[in-house]
């Protein structure tokens, strides 16, 4: 059970972006999807929420193909936070977060309040989105997904606009959500943060899964050199490993 990716192939135009990825993601755990630019991380997330159709293979949620799930049921189960999420109108933060309740069709007052509180954005609720800093906006967009109370949260680079403090707070929030049973799948670029937050890592290279499994098994110097083409130093620290790129491999 959980989110199972079975020999997934996705083509964009005539280009094969994902080429036979197989992985099993477990609820209650944080899985980091890592890989170099163009490795297929964002495409994998989009395919997991059925925004892209597989040319072959499938993504199964609790044994059911996500591509054929009713859209509302899929939306309630899988919360998706796109990369560089745009907000096209200058809405109030409260109205924006409320959008997370659309699949439920209810007011969801308690869920919205909890999402605002968890992302430290309750004080911003009555401000227009364009009055926010990049970091505040990123947290509000995360609150929008959390307000939907999905069973799975798939976020594409959710830390991109955040300062270090809010990066750590957001990771703690996502860890806590996983602790409550939510499956969390994150596309990340920061290897150190990935090593500290994730239970599991899915490492992609050229649209294929180079390695998958627990952090300590996947984030090795050899795997990272193969995935990114750089030699890295993995330094043990009390808070967790620090991964420092050294030079081209």
């Amino acid at each position: 059970m959980g989110l199972t990716i079975d020999n997934l192939h996705v083509e964009l135009g005539r280009r094969a972006v994902l080429r036979g990825i197989t992985a099993s993601l477990a609820p209650g755990r944080v899985t980091a999807v890592l890989g170099a630019n163009g490795a297929g991380k964002s495409t994998l997330l989009r395919a997991c929420v059925a925004l892209l159709l597989a040319s072959s293979g499938q993504v199964m949620l609790d044994g059911r193909d996500v591509a054929v799930l009713p859209p509302r049921e899929r939306a309630m189960a899988l919360g998706y936070l796109p990369q560089d999420a745009a907000v096209h109108w200058n809405m109030l933060v409260r109205d924006l977060v409320k959008l997370g309740r659309l699949p439920h069709g209810d007011a969801g007052t308690a869920a919205i309040a909890a999402a605002l509180s968890a992302t430290d954005t309750a004080a911003l609720a009555d401000r227009p989105v364009r009055a926010l800093s990049g970091g505040e906006r990123a947290r509000v967009l995360l609150a929008r997904v959390l307000a939907g109370e999905p069973r799975w949260l798939l976020a594409d680079e959710p830390l991109a606009s955040l300062d270090p403090l809010h990066q750590l707070e957001t990771l703690a929030l996502l860890r806590a959500a996983a602790g409550r049973g939510m499956g969390v799948v994150l596309v990340l670029h920061d290897l150190t943060l990935a090593a500290r937050v994730a239970d599991d890592v899915l490492l992609l290279k050229d649209g294929m899964a180079l390695a998958a499994g627990p952090v300590a098994e996947v984030l090795t110097e050899a795997n990272l050199a193969a995935a990114y083409g750089v030699r890295v130093a993995i330094l043990a620290q009390p808070e967790g490993p620090v991964i420092v790129p050294q030079a081209a491999a």
Binding site: L51, P71, A75, Y80, V87, L102
Partner: peptide, 13 residues
């Protein structure tokens, strides 16, 4: 929902 862009709107059902 479309305020969030087409991908986010589709992911909301």
């Amino acid at each position: 929902a479309l305020t969030l862009g087409p991908d986010a709107a589709r992911s909301l059902g």
